[in-house]
Design a protein around this nucleic acid. Structure first.
Lengths: 222, 222, 222, 222
DNA sequence: GATGAATGAGCATTCATTCAT
DNA sequence: GATGAATGAATGCTCATTCAT
């Protein structure tokens, strides 16, 4: 088995000091310190090498514990993944249905806001987002189904924002479903290449993708 | 281990009769029948479950052979993956540098053509393309490097097509790098959701994404 | 591992309310309440699933404590087993050498009494007796040796009772060793099948096996 | 964990050269040499230490293979146990319903024959018989159920033999069920203590227990 | 070319036991 | 006395790979 060979790009993620500090606000508030540290370690491992190439030892090593310690806090490796992906999707959903976004009257403003919010979250938490987008099929069928449900709801807010602008004439008569999918593709695909130390801050990328979104609906900035 | 549970979406890929017939033109001409059948089986397995969750038995079962037979034709499981990904990337590169595309004089026509070619290939061969895009980090560092090289060359043709139109005034003064990346994101991300029996044929999607590309460079269809 | 699947017969033992109340008189008088409750829980677990398939958590759960609490009261799981088996064997020994039995003049009466006493104990405490008979080889070599010693002494009373009747002509000229072993087999084997809610009370079974014992020595009831 | 400490009595079984040669006739004829050797090794291990205290390594070591080799021939450790116990019970059943036994006219002769056959099998194959009698509750519920079925059928032949003699007046008016159970107890319990190098050959013990059986039904040898 | 058998290296998970609180 | 957290040492089982046939 040539399973554990290091690949530069992804392996860097695991050791990147900028990623080492977990974002406590990312996890459920009722989790303890150790659980949050384990989740953060798991996120880095899964993002770098994928769920199946990550061992429980890898995860535990990331917080200086033995593999057995993982099982004091989580019932299985798969449930660690599920917790990460579920919370990630819940956070994204919370962002796109933010009341302040839904309160925006102009269709263009609203679409800009939702695209920016979705993009900013994926960029700022690009390591977690990578796991959320790329490790879905390591979930059990049941857990996978729960995530699909959350994605449907999130995508619905996007589709509504596009459909609204098309309906009120703000946007061109674009194919709502296809254009929405394209917008989502842009922000989802950034988990492949985004780096926090790159040219764009999450907010800058959010603005840029909001611009692109308006171009996709035929309403570029004047 | 909950490793082998089937998830509807991806697991379907393995058994989908439309995917069962390998496209012989996809593989290197010098490979024998069995080798091509093994590669096709591996593509379906890797696309459905990922490289690490696929066993050599899974691959061999797909062609009615024993796991040991794999080693008569390939030196390792990783080299099966590499062969798939390398050939996939070579095919894509060949498409985007097609002389008939480079011969197009108009910047808009050329960009349309390259986006359509790239998109059509990913859609028509979406199962292989999924492996090419999502299993990269199962490669050894060396093989990964070779693929990155191919991607750089492919991406270069995209960037040139955008830069050319910006330079000659056909397109708006967009950020070439960012916009190019966005175009690539659209076509790459389709491997997550595209189905041949869906609403769009590869060619239709190619046209649609060519349209979107022109919008992204501020030159929508009049 | 299919280790924890419940099997009806044995698993029932753990939850049988008739077994839930420990018999305080079974354990050493100097033990505290918690210790006795732990021993009773352990007896039910060991009887139901065997020593090696019983976890310290199983035992502790039976008295509503954490696994760590077990170690406040006993130095190891094996010593819990040893305590159970040792006390069980001491109790049996005490019964068969009861002065009132040894005071019986008639050889037939004495054999009847000893067989009945041995049988009654095994039947009344059949859960504990099951552990005493079936979990011996989970003991350390040293502890095993101590138990073998107790068994030899107990068996000696049986052998003497038989030998006495053979010598004084009360019984036929049977092979003392083999016949004694057969009598013991009968009462030992009841731990496999006896239930307090079955057809026979411990005393009824004791009488029945006393009858059988006399038949085995060729002196059936006239 | 003091799990692997050797206990003299039982541990001896594993290494006893007399037990090392498997009895090929004991296993299913369609099994290969390696499978039979693995079963024989497993029998010795399970008899000596019990199913749960036996590791797959122990079993494999007994035939000079690696633990993984076990899984080339059997799907799980539990199925090794089941195969042993099932075949053991089938062999016993075959012995007690031997046509030559059922052909015996006299009730005493028939009971003698069935008791002797049952006893001889348990004595000659006392190591396997020990596993058959003492490791039942390591089986899955389903497998356990299959064995219970076989035991019921075997026990039925015993009960019929007793009932017949009671009905035709050959035996005393004994309690058929209780007396039958006692006869079975005698032969089952011998797995605890029988040794092939002891005082009795299997056949001698069979004769002795046949004698005892007749005494238990009130019809001792004249 | 094909494979049944075999295995070294692992892997997720378990568990008896320890210990700071 | 009680326990939550932690862990060393397994443990059953898997799998990529090898090789004699």
């Amino acid at each position: 088995m040539a399973r554990r060979q290091a690949r530069f790009t992804a392996q860097d993620l695991v050791d990147d000091p900028r990623l080492r500090d977990h974002s406590p606000e990312l996890w459920r508030a009722d989790l303890g310190e150790v659980q949050r540290r384990l989740l953060s370690s798991a996120v880095r491992c899964f993002a770098a090498n994928g769920f199946h190439a990550t061992t429980t030892r890898d995860i535990a090593d990331g917080v200086g514990l033995s593999p057995a310690a993982l099982y004091v806090h989580f019932p299985s490796k798969e449930l660690v993944l599920f917790e990460i992906i579920r919370v990630g999707h819940e956070r994204v959903l919370a962002h796109v249905r933010d009341p302040s976004i839904l309160a925006l009257e102009g269709s263009a403003d609203r679409l800009r806001a939702i695209v920016a919010a979705y993009t900013v979250w994926h960029a700022r938490h690009h390591v977690t987002a990578r796991v959320c987008q790329m490790e879905l099929n390591a979930l059990t069928a049941e857990h996978y189904g729960e995530i699909v449900e959350l994605r449907h709801r999130t995508n619905g807010y996007f589709r509504d924002a596009v459909a609204r602008g098309v309906a009120d004439g703000t946007f061109a008569q674009v194919d709502v479903k296809r254009v929405t999918r394209a917008m989502l593709s842009l922000s989802i695909d950034l988990v492949r290449w985004y780096r926090l130390d790159g040219a764009d801050s999450p907010e800058q990328l959010g603005e840029f993708y909001a611009d692109l979104a308006l171009r996709l609906v035929g309403r570029p900035k004047e």
